Computed example of a mutant assay.
Amino acid sequence: MIGDVPWGTHFCQFYQTKDDLIDILVPYFKAGLENNEYCMWVTSKPLEVDEAKEALKDSVENVEDI
């Protein structure tokens, strides 16, 4: 857990596989959506849009309704 950080702080995550990327990003977006925050996930290779949607759908209840 990071705690409070000033606005504009940037974080960097390194990953080796598509599964690593999903393991990093899904919990991040899940927390944001559960807190009614605006979230935008821009995907690129190796993770395609449909794969990102499926990963999020597996983790976030009613994500299609958000």
Rank of each mutant, 00 (worst) to 15 (best):
E37G: 05
V49E: 03
W7V: 15
Q16A: 10
T9Y: 05
M1V: 02
V5Y: 07
L21S: 07
D65V: 13
G32D: 03
V63T: 07
D19H: 04
V5G: 01
D19A: 15
L56N: 02
T17Q: 04
Q16M: 08
I24F: 13
D65K: 12
E54G: 05
S44C: 14
E54K: 14
F11C: 13
S59L: 00
V26D: 12
F11H: 10
V5K: 02
L56W: 00
A55H: 02
M40F: 03
D23L: 07
T9D: 14
Q13V: 04
L25D: 11
F29I: 04
I24L: 05
L21C: 12
V60D: 01
L33Q: 06
C12P: 05
D50F: 13
A55F: 08
E34T: 15
G8E: 07
G3R: 11
W7P: 14
H10K: 03
D4P: 14
A31L: 04
D50A: 08
E51A: 11
G3E: 09
N62L: 08
I22M: 01
K53H: 14
E37M: 15
L56K: 06
V26P: 15
D50K: 00
V42M: 04
D19P: 11
G32N: 08
L21K: 09
L21I: 01
D58F: 13
Q13K: 10
N36W: 14
L21W: 04
V63P: 10
V5H: 04
N35P: 01
I66M: 09
V49H: 15
P46F: 12
N36A: 02
L25Y: 07
F14R: 09
A31K: 03
G8T: 02
T43R: 07
G8Y: 06
D65I: 13
N35E: 11
E37A: 00
Q13M: 07
E64C: 12
V49Y: 15
T43N: 15
S59M: 01
D4M: 03
E61V: 06
E37H: 04
K53I: 13
I22P: 04
C39R: 14
Q13E: 06
E34G: 10
V63H: 01
V63W: 03
